[in-house]
Amino acid sequence: MSSRPLSRRTLLAVVGLGGVEALLAACSGAASPQAVVTSTSTSTVVAAPQTGTSGSAALPSGASSAGPTTAGGIAASTAQSDAASSEAQSSAAQSTAVQSSPAQSSTGASSSTAPSNTSPAVPTGTPVHVRLYQSDGRTYGVGLPIIVYLSQKITDGKPFASATKVTVDGVAVAGAWYFQKSGIYPGYPLEAHYRLENYWPAHAAINLDLPVKGLSAGTGLVFDDSLTLKMSTGAKNITTVDGATERLRLTTDGVAKFDFPVSLGKASTPTFTGTKVVMERDKIERMVGTTPGDEYDLQVPWSVRLTNSGEFIHAASWNGGNIGQRSTSNGCTNLNVDDAQRYFNFATIGDVAVYVNTGGGAMPVWDGYGDWNLSWAQWKRGGSVATS
C-alpha cells in the first residue's frame, strides 16, 4: 500500500517545533525513513481541551485518533478533539469614589475632600485565549503536567504565573510554568506546562484556579479568559525500561506489577533515554513502511504512545525471536502480544516510563511530555517566556 500524507497534527508539530528531530525512527523491525503510520481504531485520548472557567465538555470516550507521518516507522501523535466549553465569566472590578467625612474646623466651618478614583488602568491589546488539555473530573497518572495552550506568543509570563493558584488535597503548592513552542492546535502557537519539583502525589485531588482574564500578557497583549480545573491522580505507576537487560518492569504504588522482556531500538534507530509520560492508548495502530527493501503494512495492536514523534510500547509478534535478547526495532519498545495487552489495559494517561541504557539521546522536552528531563532549576526559568 502506498504511503499516505502527513496528518495535520504531525505536520504542525514538526514545523512548529522547528525540528527534523521530530522525524525520528521507531516502532517496528528495521529502519524505514519513509514509513507512514495511520491510527485506524479507537484510542483513549487524554482529555478534551477546555476553555472558559470550569466544567468543559469532555471528549467522548470512543473518540478516534488518526495520524499518518513519515520518519522511520514512528507514528506521530494524532488524537485531538475540540470539545466546546463555557466561556469564562469574570466581572470587571468596579471602582468606587471615596469621600471623606466632613471635619469641623476650630472655627466651626466644615471641610470635605473631593471624590477620587484610584482604579488602575485596564490593559488593552490583542486578546490571548487560553485552553486546557485536561478535563474536569478525570483521573491521570502522577507524571502528567497541567497543560494549557495559548492563542498568541506572549512576551511576559509574570502576571500569568503570579495569578496561578494550585492546591493538592486542599493545600496550596508551589509549582512552576514552562513555556514552549506548540504545533498541536492551529492558532495556538504556544503551550505552557505546570508541574511541581517532583511528581504529583498519588490518589490526590488537584485544583487549578487561573484567573488571568484582563491581565497583561506583554506589550499589546491581554488575556481574554480565565480557567479552573478539578482533576485527580491515580496510583503511582512507574515503568522502568532497561536496554542493558532488555526488560520492562512496572511498579504501582511501590509494588511490583509487571516484568516483561522487550526489544528496543537498534543502534541506527535507538530509543530515547530519559523520563517519558504516557500520552495515549491505541488498540490498533496501522504502520506502513515504504523504504525500498523494507516495505510493510502492519496493524499493530496494544500501542501505548510515549512521544509526539512516535515512540510506542506495543505488541510485535513479528519480532518475537529478538524480544528479551537484543534491540532490533526502529525505536519503539516491542513486547510479546500477551504482555502488550496486559500493559495496555493497565496503563493510564500520565503514567511515568523511565528509559535507561538505550544507546539513544535524551528525549527532548518538546517531544510530548518530556518535562521531567529538565532539572527543577531549569524548569523554573520558564522556558521561552520569563515568569519571574
Results as ranks from 00 to 15, higher is better:
residue 120 P to S: 05
residue 46 V to Q: 14
residue 314 H to Q: 10
residue 239 T to I: 14
residue 177 W to T: 03
residue 300 V to S: 00
residue 382 G to F: 01
residue 4 R to S: 15
residue 101 S to P: 11
residue 314 H to L: 01
residue 199 Y to T: 10
residue 212 V to F: 01
residue 246 E to A: 15
residue 158 K to A: 02
residue 18 G to I: 03
residue 333 T to R: 09
residue 290 T to S: 07
residue 168 V to I: 06
residue 205 A to S: 15
residue 13 A to E: 10
residue 126 T to F: 02
residue 187 G to W: 03
residue 148 V to E: 06
residue 128 V to K: 01
residue 326 R to C: 01
residue 365 V to D: 04
residue 280 E to F: 05
residue 235 A to E: 10
residue 373 N to L: 00
residue 44 T to S: 07
residue 364 P to K: 08
residue 64 S to G: 13
residue 17 L to N: 12
residue 210 L to M: 06
residue 326 R to N: 09
residue 152 Q to P: 00
residue 24 L to G: 14
residue 96 T to C: 06
residue 93 A to F: 12
residue 376 W to L: 02
residue 60 P to R: 02
residue 174 A to P: 04
residue 67 G to P: 04
residue 105 S to L: 11
residue 180 Q to N: 05
residue 89 Q to H: 09
residue 137 G to Q: 04
residue 296 Y to L: 06
residue 229 L to F: 03
residue 298 L to E: 05
residue 90 S to Q: 15
residue 384 S to N: 04
residue 201 P to T: 06
residue 114 A to D: 08
residue 386 A to E: 03
residue 214 G to M: 10
residue 358 T to H: 07
residue 28 S to K: 14
residue 56 S to M: 12
residue 93 A to D: 10
residue 186 P to M: 00
residue 118 T to W: 06
residue 106 S to E: 13
residue 236 K to F: 00
residue 199 Y to L: 12
residue 3 S to E: 13
residue 283 K to M: 07
residue 86 S to V: 13
residue 46 V to K: 14
residue 112 S to F: 07
residue 308 N to I: 13
residue 160 F to L: 13
residue 224 D to C: 04
residue 122 V to G: 03
residue 292 P to D: 14
residue 269 T to E: 09
residue 310 G to N: 04
residue 382 G to D: 02
residue 147 I to G: 04
residue 134 Q to T: 07
residue 106 S to D: 14
residue 53 T to P: 08
residue 45 V to A: 14
residue 301 P to S: 08
residue 286 R to D: 12
residue 134 Q to L: 07
residue 93 A to E: 10
residue 386 A to D: 09
residue 40 T to I: 09
residue 320 G to Y: 11
residue 316 A to Q: 12
residue 274 G to R: 03
residue 145 P to M: 05
residue 365 V to F: 03
residue 49 P to Q: 10
residue 224 D to R: 05
residue 218 G to M: 05
residue 151 S to P: 04
residue 19 G to L: 14
residue 373 N to Q: 02
residue 376 W to P: 08
residue 116 S to F: 01
residue 216 S to C: 08
